[in-house]
Simulated assay, not measured.
Amino acid sequence: MFSYPFMQNAYMAGTLIAIISGIMGVFVIARNMSFLTHTLSEIGFAGAAFGIFMGWQALNGMLLFTTISSIGVGELGAKSSRRENSITAISALAIGLGILFLSLANSNASYATGILFGSVIGISRQNVIQMSLLSAGVLICLLVIYRFLKFDSFDPIGARVEGLWTRTLSVIFLVLLAFSVSVAAQIVGSLLIFILLTLPAAAAKYFVHSVGAMAGLAVVFALLGVWLGLYLSYVTNWPVSFFISVIEVICYFSALMYNRVRS
């Protein structure tokens, strides 16, 4: 299996995706942003379609659209009363634009399938290098703001009382989330990326209680889903996103069962 360059690239990219998704997912869950993550995946679809229309790499289009949209959501959704409406409006616009750009690009069905559900064979060494640089950037930024982000995510009232720059912090986190969505969508696809950014962390919180331990276990669950999913996809020739989804759902329901038995 590893004698094929595309599988080597897929496993290297998948490892990066699992690490980023596991760590970011802890804060996505803590900040109740699962719905926003799903929206950013739809925006990523529009960005990838725009990239194909412009003759760019799909990843560049995703980065452009998700970054601009995350900043827009951070500004428009500053008040919780209008956050969901803002997210819904941007999501609806993104889906429409994605369909339009694919139509204008005259792309065949395989392009759309690759964007929506991911593609193992579509990962080149250049993509891996680009994803490595983006992943390193996300991790460095997370390390710099980690203490403040943890405070704001797990004790938002206390953070506001202490005068923490919560609005700026929220926008920074949303931009990092946009980068994470764009990176991860290369393998899992824009429709299902929210699975890796939510379920591993959601499962981990039932087993451990500290933020660091939760992030570590979430990365383990994400790695399990990606590595095993890639292997099963290679063996069966079925979509890798299907296997990753099933494995992460099993991890989550196993965590729920463990929590029930322990209780």
Rank of each mutant, 00 (worst) to 15 (best):
I195L: 09
I195N: 10
I195R: 02
I195S: 08
L197H: 11
L197D: 11
L197G: 11
L197F: 06
T198C: 07
L199C: 12
L199F: 10
L199N: 15
L199P: 10
P200M: 04
P200A: 09
P200R: 04
A201L: 03
A202I: 04
A202K: 09
A202S: 10
A203S: 11
A203E: 15
A203D: 10
A204P: 06
A204N: 06
A204M: 04
K205N: 13
K205M: 12
K205A: 13
K205H: 13
Y206A: 13
Y206I: 14
Y206V: 15
Y206G: 14
F207Y: 11
F207T: 02
F207I: 03
V208S: 01
V208I: 08
V208T: 05
V208F: 01
V208P: 05
V208C: 02
V208Y: 00
V208H: 02
H209Y: 15
H209D: 15
H209E: 15
S210W: 10
V211N: 00
V211K: 00
G212C: 05
G212R: 04
G212K: 06
G212S: 03
G212P: 06
G212V: 03
A213G: 14
A213L: 15
A213T: 14
M214E: 15
M214F: 13
M214Q: 14
A215W: 03
A215N: 05
A215L: 12
A215E: 08
G216L: 11
G216P: 14
G216C: 09
G216Q: 09
L217R: 08
L217T: 02
L217N: 00
A218H: 14
A218T: 12
A218F: 10
A218C: 14
V219Y: 08
V219D: 00
V219S: 05
V219L: 07
V220D: 12
F221K: 12
A222R: 13
L223V: 06
L223M: 07
L223W: 04
L223A: 08
L223G: 09
L224G: 13
L224T: 15
L224P: 12
G225H: 03
G225T: 00
G225D: 01
G225K: 04
G225N: 01
G225R: 03
G225S: 01
G225W: 04
V226I: 09
V226N: 13
W227Q: 07
L228D: 07
L228Y: 10
L228E: 11
L228C: 08
L228F: 11
G229V: 07
G229C: 07
G229W: 06
G229T: 08
G229F: 08
L230N: 02
Y231N: 13
Y231T: 14
Y231W: 11
Y231V: 14
L232W: 12
L232D: 11
S233V: 03
S233Q: 01
S233W: 00
S233A: 05
Y234L: 11
Y234E: 09
Y234N: 05
Y234D: 08
V235Y: 00
V235M: 06
V235C: 05
V235Q: 02
V235W: 01
V235G: 06
T236E: 12
T236M: 11
